[in-house]
Amino acid sequence: MRLGFLVDLSRCMGCMACAVSCKAENNVPLHSWRLRVKYIDQGEFPDTKRHFVPLRCNHCENAPCERICPVSALHYLPNGIVNVDHDRCIGCASCMMACPYNAIYLDPLTNSADKCTYCAHRIEVGMMPACVVACPTHANIFGDLDDPESEISKYLQEHRDVMVRKPELNTKPKHFYVRGSTVALDPLASERPEGYTLFTEVKFLDHIGGH
């Protein structure tokens, strides 16, 4: 079994239900994100458009974070999920440096690294990840990549425009996107003009708390 994720970008409407449901399910502290929804404005009036992109850990098959962790706090589960163990983590942050997707953060309350675990604890009892349950437009698809009958496998079979983030780094992500544009996934695909995008300002102000 290899659990993977797929986002149908034509359906995502940027409501952030996934981001908040993740916070609730995994008790993610403020200022830390396992899942973010990026807003990207494109074009000039009146041809302006907006894209929404949920970003989370890709649970790479060739995960640089799992490889670099000196204490195996990051480890693979039999279903392909890259899991995290706070007890083992020594807070060296090598994983944060190794991850090219900025998916890992340091939990300010425990000073351990943390990231999306595809709600591995829910998988144990046969439940979908919280963000998949929440999504109002069914943009989040999750399932077994090894099962050709699963919804995610069917999506992958039926779509030609499957994308992943930074494919050139050979991390082999198990998180896919369909029906989006390069503007959504490739940070270099567009130039950011003088204006501002709606709601993407995440300012790291004077950091309070933790370390």
């Binding site: 399910e25 995994n26 008790n27 706090a73 480890h75 589960l77 899991n83 995290v84 163990d85 706070h86 007890d87 083992r88 425990t110 943390d114 675990t117 709600c119 591995a120 604890h121 829910r122 998988i123 144990e124 009892v125 046969g126 439940m127 979908m128 998949v132 349950v133 999750f142 399932g143």
Partner: peptide
């Protein structure tokens, strides 16, 4: 994988705590 537990288990559904899982490494540990 289901979206919700079966109704007949709603009065008594056991599910691992996400918070505890992350702090102690989950089922393997």
């Amino acid at each position: 994988l289901d979206y919700y537990p079966p109704f007949d288990k709603w009065n008594d559904w056991k599910e691992p705590s996400g918070d505890y899982w992350k702090k102690h490494g989950g089922a393997l540990r």
